[in-house]
Design a protein around this nucleic acid. Structure first.
Lengths: 340, 340
DNA sequence: TATTAGCACTCTCGTCTGTAGAGTGCTAAC
DNA sequence: GTTAGCACTCTACAGACGAGAGTGCTAATA
């Protein structure tokens, strides 16, 4: 089949209309939108588009709706590079400048902005380097037998952990130990830190082991925390009018291995990427879609922003929002970690 | 109406059976369970229990199901103080002893254990004192223009926050500032810290203000993080076969003011408390129920463990699990914060 | 050759009806 | 006080039916 301009137009109209109404769209309705030809002509074109696999029929007397392939073509070749309006951009960037300088807050805000602007669920991961490196350690006495270990990593993550003391140690002594280990471990990754910890004994050895295992935990990809927002909005979509669909989605979120997997597959530095339905390689992902982008400095510290929803997703809006938020985070990261 | 022993028994059977099957239970079924009298006799007793408001009828030809009042009577006067089996107790306590000494991990584990053992959703808050008190502060240079402030509070909470530097400060200088402020602020609450911060200037003033506002944030009750688990199991209950019920529940969880409110109302040191339906004072809480208990040392650091589910909840199991988990947390808290 | 009007055909969805089944409440007997 | 018997009520499910929507095809038209 030849992909004439008119067919492209009609496909675009069907996709947009279906995204808006969630109802299969018929030839009559299209004729009313796009004046110039009659519904009969449009029917012929629709049949051609269906034969090519861009559209389907739920049943004989229903209108057309896009297939996975139809959405893909729309995203690739029909959809215009829709930009957020300057007003919206300013509103968003304003919010980012108001918030305090804290990674956690940035993540929450990013998720909130993505969800509210694109009317879908948002998933955001915190920036992380390829592997964590030791930066600083602090020991604080809590009681006679307990001390708190505070660990700061190069990328800015902070972890704390309680430690049992076999014998009471004064704060002065704790500080001395911390200072010694700070010099000893400066800049090491978990493996090298682990190796160097062998030379230590007693309490310092315990501290070192604890640090190493905390860092290993962080390096495991499953330990990444994912910030989410907008789940509720998604559940209001008509696709989840059936209970089982709703449950399926809930399960996908709760045990989020699947979505995490999608995020890991994201190629580095490819700009915004769109995954539609089974393209992701998971059958459960059947009629869902995701729009993702990496932000930050590759190799240094980077994370992922993404939105997720039913396959019937406002792609133009989603793509441009993801693009804009990731560019904002790029700036922030550069500003605060760039001049290291 | 006189509450004879037989009526109490029958009420107990109806409640237990309804909890198990989620179906209204008829006189015939009861006669099969509790031998000795015929279904006709039981029908008379059921009518009496219904007249008193312990049971209802969804419609003429359906069996009986408990009302809010019925559940209340069951919890108060019928249900035997059901203890978790020693084997279950040992399994749970074993899990607690395996986990590292970290408040966050305890909370997660508590929620998980509550949810899995009682087959409902669990909500747990971290231990907190009546107001936060300054313990320790650390300043760590991240780049030329950015430093990280790590704040440790008496109750063991750790907060971090990035700070913009107007001019570069060497790590040595940062440390000196931190030491000075550590002495200056030791043991203060946010109000007094705020007052004392007025005497400071320049960067130290910024640091002090940041600390004060972080502490105020934490003191606001809404900032408490709630650990959750077992949401998914709850959604599989037959009460949520309708989509709107499911959405209503989701909303209750997402904007969790309501549940938080219930938790705040919990009287201190009352042992395990059960809230059934409208008793909580919220109309939306209509056929839900909650079982709560406070743990920790009142006035020092305490938190709440609770489970939440439909009014048709396995009360004996829920009550005993909440009781056991809270006692375990009591022990842990005493062990690590008691000897301060 | 591309477009269009006309029309038979198909499928869904909401409404209505009828029936089987479950459980009650009452009465009269034990 | 307890029980058997029975009429009565209500639900849940299945089948029937008509209105409405939209298609695909055919034949006429520009």
């Amino acid at each position: 089949m030849e992909m004439t301009e008119r067919r492209r137009q009609i496909l675009g109209l069907v996709v947009r209309e279906y995204i808006k109404t969630a109802q299969p769209v018929g030839s009559e309705a299209l004729a009313r939108l796009k004046l110039g030809v009659s519904s009969a002509t449009i029917r012929n074109e629709l049949a051609a588009l269906e034969a090519e696999g861009f559209l389907t029929h739920p049943h004989t007397s229903a209108g057309r709706m896009p297939t996975e392939r139809g959405y893909r073509y729309f995203v690739e070749s029909v959809m215009d590079e829709f930009e957020l309006s300057p007003i919206e951009q300013r509103m968003i960037s304003h919010q980012f400048h108001q918030v305090t300088l804290d990674v956690e807050q940035w993540m929450r805000l990013s998720a909130a902005v993505l969800a509210h602007t694109s009317h879908t669920a948002a998933l955001v991961t915190a920036p992380r380097g390829p592997e964590s490196r030791f930066k600083h350690l602090e020991l604080i006495g809590i009681s006679d037998k307990v001390a708190m270990l505070v660990l700061v990593l190069q990328e800015g993550t902070v972890k704390q952990q309680m430690l049992n003391l076999s014998q009471p140690l004064p704060q002065e002594e704790l500080r001395r130990i911390a200072n010694r280990l700070n010099d000893y471990f400066a800049g090491l990754n978990s493996a090298r830190l682990h190796a160097r910890a062998r030379d230590l004994t007693d309490f310092t050895a315990t501290v070192a082991e604890t640090i190493a295992s905390l860092m290993e935990q962080l390096d495991q990809r499953t330990s990444r925390e994912i910030y989410r927002d907008g789940l509720l909005d998604i559940f209001r979509q008509p696709e989840f009018a059936a209970v089982d669909r709703m449950q399926q989605l809930l399960e996908m979120f709760e045990q989020h291995n699947l979505l995490e997997d999608m995020m890991l597959k994201l190629a580095p530095n490819q700009g915004v990427q769109v995954i539609i339905g089974r393209e992701g390689g998971h059958d459960e992902f059947n009629d869902y879609a995701m729009v993702l982008a990496r932000y930050g400095v590759e190799g240094e510290a980077s994370g992922i922003v993404s939105v997720f929803g039913p396959m019937r997703m406002p792609y133009p809006l989603a793509v441009s929002t993801v693009k804009y938020v990731s560019s904002l985070l790029d700036d922030l990261m550069l500003r605060f970690y760039g001049g290291r």
